[in-house]
Amino acid sequence: MAALFFGILILAALIFAVVAGLVIYAILRYRARAGAAAPRQTFGSRRMEIVWTALPLLIVCGLFVLSARTMASIEAPQNGLRAPELVIVGRQWWWEARYSNGAMAANEIHIPVGRKLLVRVESPDVIHDFWVPELARKIDAVPGTPGYIWLEADHAGTYLGACAEFCGAQHAGHRFQVIAEPEAAFDKWLAAQAVDGAAPPPAYLANKCADCHSVAGVETRIMKGPTLAHVASRTIDLARWVRTPQAVKPGVLMPDAHLSEADAIAITEYLSSLK
């Protein structure tokens, strides 16, 4: 991949240098002199035209071969015949990850270091695009047409991702993280994700939080909002989200619920306990 990218960069720089060089040469050498006669009227050269067509043609042929080989080496099978290790669902405007043990994650997607995962990316609403530039190619999540990518991190760390297909009001806020950790730590995390969160307090239920959010470890229903089962393990300003989601992410589908301060405190405390 790096070979392809740098190859193109160098090629482009060379071509531009040739073009710019010729233009600058023309500007300097063939500036009109006062009173000069008309220059020799040349109309073309079949030979030059053939050369300067054949050369670029050869270059793009070479470029195509390099590009096709790189594409073949990084492309995941797109026909859906192989079961994915991870399913990513893009929604307006958060990312859901579903693991093979049924556990779910939202926006902070853990993967084990050093393992190549087949990921299926899909969407139930509009077209999104799952893009974590340091780890994988981008793939559109088209309703009705899921896509597949290989996802593999060689080193542990937090890799930033963003939605790369305009998906409405908070497309800009449709960001996520892929957190790669060593195999053992990942397994521990995954097992913990499958555990249900504690039962919610009355304030949570009375204000209808459960209509859109689940606190179950394994949730089979399609929920409108991200899972909260382990929300405290994510980096979120819970106090602000609970009280004024529209101020945090204007246009988000979660309405401002105008909670009483008592309810807001109770719900925030509860959510902060869901590690």
Partner: peptide, 11 residues
């Protein structure tokens, strides 16, 4: 460019 080369260019 080939048109410019060999010409008498007024800028």
């Amino acid at each position: 460019i080939a048109t410019m080369l060999g010409g008498s260019i007024r800028f």
